[in-house]
Simulated assay, not measured.
Amino acid sequence: MAISTPSLELLESFLALAESGSVSKAAQILHRSQPAISERLQRLTELAGEPLYYGMGRGVRLTAAGEAYLAPARRLRDPKREWSDMVQRRRQFASRCAWSTTGRIDLESRHRRTLCSCRTVNP
């Protein structure tokens, strides 16, 4: 029997639920509708083959299975965050630079230190 791998959007929904304790808060965090998040969570639960959370008052709590899947889900999310952070840093750096017609970088004097620090952070 083949095991399906959840998409990153399903895992992000699960993590938002786990970290916020509420489907509606998870929807706000992810800028999605509550029904969309509920659908994603249902699909993830089906993939896992067991309940990952249960309702408690107005919020939710993770089951033992949900707790077991939490750390792996976080590890899978981290590379995406790392990628996004790198893109943002490089875009910020690029916006401080002006390309001359010769293809060389002309920097304003106040940004010369930034270039040195960017080379260290992003070799």
Rank of each mutant, 00 (worst) to 15 (best):
E9S: 12
E9G: 02
L10R: 11
L10Q: 14
L11F: 06
L11D: 05
S13W: 00
S13P: 01
S13F: 00
S13G: 15
F14P: 15
F14I: 03
L15T: 13
L15M: 08
L17D: 03
L17I: 04
L17Y: 05
E19N: 08
E19M: 03
S20W: 02
G21K: 03
G21P: 02
S22R: 13
V23N: 05
V23P: 02
S24Q: 08
S24W: 02
K25P: 01
K25V: 00
Q28Y: 10
Q28E: 15
Q28D: 15
I29H: 07
L30W: 05
H31Y: 05
H31D: 10
R32D: 00
R32K: 13
Q34L: 02
Q34P: 09
Q34C: 06
Q34N: 12
P35G: 03
A36F: 10
A36L: 08
A36R: 15
A36M: 09
A36H: 14
I37R: 13
E39F: 08
E39L: 11
E39C: 02
E39I: 01
R40C: 04
R40P: 02
L41G: 10
L41H: 10
Q42N: 11
Q42C: 06
R43F: 09
R43C: 07
L44Y: 15
T45C: 11
E46K: 14
E46D: 15
L47K: 15
A48R: 09
G49Q: 14
E50V: 13
E50H: 06
Y53V: 00
Y53T: 00
Y53F: 15
Y53N: 00
Y54E: 11
Y54R: 13
G55A: 13
M56G: 02
M56D: 12
M56S: 12
M56R: 14
M56H: 12
R58G: 13
R58H: 13
G59R: 01
G59D: 04
G59V: 04
V60E: 01
R61K: 15
R61C: 11
R61T: 02
L62R: 07
L62T: 06
L62M: 06
L62E: 06
L62Y: 09
T63N: 10
T63E: 12
A65C: 04
A65D: 07
G66N: 10
G66Q: 07
E67S: 07
E67F: 04
E67D: 07
E67A: 09
A68Y: 03
L70T: 09
L70A: 05
L70F: 15
L70D: 05
P72D: 09
P72R: 06
P72E: 07
P72K: 06
A73W: 01
A73H: 04
R75N: 03
R75K: 11
R75D: 06
R75A: 09
